[in-house]
């Protein structure tokens, strides 16, 4: 077929050379495949590069102090003594506080949204909770310094210590300065709440209706149906969400740095200031003068990297497991 001006629309099929051309597009496809494969490989390469760069820089310290780096609580850059125990302790304790406070709330709000809330309320409440995840860490820190700390200092801490007599537990003793492990834990709780809640809500909404109906049909009350049928079904997914939240809490930097008090000591009381690995890095990294100090900080970063890698790996694996199971069951 030809155009009015006589040019062929498709290279004519007479003869045999032109019709089935062999070249051209195959090269484009190879370039394209190569390009997207390269971009995909950037992800593992980036992780490897991070591990390598930080690991190599922290190696002198890890090599010199060995396992003692994790257990010693001497952190003295001037004397060249580096033990990360207070930072590791603070990271773990502040994250535990966060999870203890956030998990029941997150599960509660997710259950409310999936089981109780009228349809018109679901979207806005879910949106508000998700919104918590959009607030930058530094804004949480700002709010913590000027709103949370004064409130903790005045009514809350004395109330816990003196009115409820919780000082006997050893966790709520000492002067109520404000900046403390407790303050960091509370702000972390607010920050990880949306992560736990969104995973929980997703998992709860995936629980088949038949689960609830079967329990209700057997004469269970609404709560019993939730407790006995819905929650067990969603349990491993929720656990995945909590561990995901833990991963966030472990690495959270700015808000914690602004509220925890930044003192490298291990104290039993939650009223006492502490340190986390992330806040240690944020505070000292730009001031590190000696190579030994810098290497010690790199070692801390490496430990933090490895811990969050493991925690996130477990969380993702759990969540995947659940989504694979539920999609298999409903399909």
């Amino acid at each position: 077929m030809t155009l009015p001006d006589g040019r062929a629309v498709v290279e004519a099929r007479e003869g045999d050379g032109a019709t089935l051309s062999i070249h051209g597009a195959a090269i484009g496809d190879r370039v394209y495949t190569g390009a997207i494969t390269f971009f995909a490989l950037c992800v593992p390469l980036l992780l490897l590069a991070i591990a390598w760069e930080i690991g190599v820089a922290g190696w002198p310290t890890l090599h010199k102090f060995g396992f003692g780096f994790l257990t010693s609580s001497d952190w003295d850059p001037v004397k060249g003594e580096f033990g990360a125990a207070p930072a590791i302790y603070g990271t773990i304790v502040s994250s535990i506080i966060a999870l203890v406070l956030a998990t029941p709330l997150a599960i509660g709000v997710s259950l409310f949204l999936s089981e109780l809330a009228p349809r018109w309320l679901r979207q806005p409440v879910g949106f508000l909770v998700d919104l918590l995840a959009a607030i930058p860490s530094v804004v949480y820190g700002l709010w913590g310094i000027f709103v949370l700390l004064p409130v903790l200092r005045d009514p809350v801490m004395p109330f816990l210590r003196d009115t409820l007599h919780l000082d006997k537990t050893g966790l709520f003793t000492g002067p109520a300065y404000g900046p403390s492990m407790l303050a960091a834990g509370i702000i972390l709780a607010i920050m990880v709440l949306p992560y736990i809640a969104s995973v929980s809500r997703e998992v709860l909404l995936a629980v088949p209706r038949s689960q609830r109906e079967a329990a209700l049909a057997l004469g269970a009350t609404r709560w019993e149906a939730i407790w006995g049928a819905v929650l067990p079904y969603a349990r491993s997914g929720i656990v995945g969400g909590v561990i995901l939240g833990l991963g966030r809490a472990l690495g959270e930097t700015m808000a914690v740095t602004m509220l925890i008090g930044n003192r490298p000591e291990i104290a039993a009381s939650l009223f006492a200031p502490g340190y986390t690995m992330a806040s240690l890095l944020a505070n000292e990294f730009s001031e590190a003068s000696s190579d030994a100090h810098l290497s010690a900080l790199m070692a801390v970063a490496f430990v933090l990297f490895v811990i969050t890698l493991i925690v996130n790996g477990i969380a993702r694996w759990l969540v995947w497991q659940v989504s694979r199971n539920t999609s298999g069951r409903t399909a």
Binding site: L20, H23, G24
Partner: peptide
């Protein structure tokens, strides 16, 4: 050596 893409154009 025949290109599938070329075939589909015809």
């Amino acid at each position: 050596g025949v290109n599938a893409i070329a075939v589909r154009k015809h």
